[in-house]
Write a protein that binds this DNA or RNA. Structure first.
Lengths: 152, 152
DNA sequence: AGAATTAAGGACAAATTTATCCACTAAACA
DNA sequence: TGTTTAGTGGATAAATTTGTCCTTAATTCT
């Protein structure tokens, strides 16, 4: 499971990208509200994003977050690495510090498959591909925003 | 990534099973030393195991931990569930509380594959299958116990 | 029964992650 | 230049996970 920080980062980045498409640069308050994350913690997480140059931040009036090159695909992989480092992609289910083929834990081979599977997934999924799903209605950005047709 | 508690639990259970095969019932002190986990925390983790009836504990002299039915395969799945609950098997990478096919997050389909992959893995891997690997030398129980042929 | 041994359980402490607050800086605009 | 707006960075707090300690209960052996 990803950390809360990583989850918020991913959601925020998708939201920023979508708003940029509409010519808007959302601030962290708006972002937090829209993706359903704690405001100040989201600000911190976005600082990490800007420090890693995954997104730009403009200060002052008319500022907010934006992608310098929105057409360049940004993989979830990069976001996770910026927040949590590489640990997800090299961790051992048995808890070995240095689990590898030459000194494997008893789950190494099998767990490596799962891990590599996960890596492939987060490399393949991008901010753009997620935004596309949200925009065509096949996925949502914020769970609290369910549009129930039979709501009272 | 699993919690430390889950990692220690898995390692401990394999160790207990292997010692039982030799007619021994290790105590938590021995277990902690042998699997390289913090002594008292390991005791706590083993309490969880006994409460879930995954292993038995005998008090007093000659006591220690043991499997009542060592021939019954015990999947890692059961150990993880006892420690961390089901969250690993239903969690959402995007952070949705209730992510499902009818209201999916933008990573749902892909992440579900990874998750199911992981579930299959931990159902397939058992205490016995891991012990077998350790006993035939194709895996180790404790990373610090590397037997280097060229050691000084 | 008494001593020794071993797990159980509760209280507590340290470390990490998650979350909040505030003073500061940079930018835009009047 | 001054005011407003918006991100930055440091300090702090709350919550959770990880780890320790100590007393009690159960069991065995003498």
């Amino acid at each position: 499971m990803l950390s809360k920080a990583a989850e918020y980062a991913i959601r925020s980045m998708v939201y920023i990208w979508m708003m940029n498409q509409q010519g808007k640069r959302p601030g962290y308050r708006t972002i937090a509200t829209e993706v359903g994350s704690p405001e100040h913690f989201t600000a911190k997480v976005l600082q990490t994003m800007t420090r890693h140059n995954l997104v730009k931040a403009g200060k002052g009036r008319g500022g907010g977050f934006y992608f310098e090159h929105p057409e360049e695909e940004l993989a979830v992989f990069e976001i996770i690495k910026a927040i949590d480092g590489e640990k997800f992609f090299s961790s051992c289910a048995f808890g070995f510090e240095n689990c590898n083929c030459s000194n494997p834990c008893p789950m190494h081979d099998e767990f490596k498959l799962v891990r590599d599977n996960f890596s492939e997934m987060v490399i393949k999924i991008t901010v753009q591909s997620m935004a596309a799903k949200i925009m065509n209605g096949s996925a949502s950005l914020n769970q609290n925003k369910i549009v129930s047709p039979s709501a009272t």
